[in-house]
Amino acid sequence: MTKEDYLELYKQMVIIRLIEEKCEELYQKSKIGGFMHLYIGQEAISARKPQDNVITAYRDHGIAIACGMDPKPLMAEMLGKVTGCCKGKGGSMHLADINLRFWGGHAIVGAHLALATGLAWADKQKGSDGVTLCFFGDGASNIGYFHESLNLAAVWKLPVLFICENNHYGMWTPVEDASAVTDIRKKALGYDIPSDVCDGMDLLAVRKASEKAIAHIRSGKGPFFLEVMTYRYRGHSMGDQRPYRTADEIKEWQTKDPIGKFEPVMMKKGITKEQIESIHAESAKVVEEAVRFAEESPFPPMEELYTDIYVENQ
């Protein structure tokens, strides 16, 4: 990877972090409603090509940015504005952009694993070499969909990369209290799907593991399972202040912060402290502009209530 790649990926992580902090603030001011799940600590980056699909669960802000979504329509969606990526009809848990092949945040746990098999099947049927990157949490590995989807992907040799973001908690329940195996990748063994594990706090490690996995899939060998060990600094969703984790545990993970940890790596590559600082300043500006755009945008007009229910006129 070049110096420019490093700068770009670092900037992406910083923007995600700042967006999440801003969302937290706007939620506390009641400008954002509904359920909201923050990505802070999990700023993992994918190594995909434009023809590849991405689909994820409801903790989707970071992945939307990693897919290339402009922070403006993202922030506008958060505020329920008509300029949002889904015209204000999806909200925090349902960001999407068809032009980026980002097929959505989905909020029924595990259900989007089934959708991922279909996205990949359609690619395969059309002769595309696209790979479908399907992100989900450790909690999703206990639901029937997980097993039905891994099985179908293996039987049909579908080009799906199952990426389990193991952040050690399904809502408030630790993995070991909910899953018979704590190494989630062991479940892939039952479907004869090859797997790997990587440090989700280390951008280059995630990058390397996902590149390897994607190359495996693109060579026509069927699905792959990647377990990314990570941690969310914030609660499951906003308002989660339950005492299921210790302050020490959170602090310990924060010493491995993916952004902080990457800075010395960048310096070794010859990137200066000034360059890093200017990325922070630029990113802050991008987020500030996105918030202004969202605040100034109109809410959807009442006619929007009845649009897009069906494609065909009723």
């Binding site: 990526c85 889904c86 204000g88 009809k89 999407a96 068809i98 897009d308």
Partner: peptide, 8 residues
Amino acid sequence: HSMFGGQF
């Protein structure tokens, strides 16, 4: 179709 603002 509806939840994603008509994109899909």
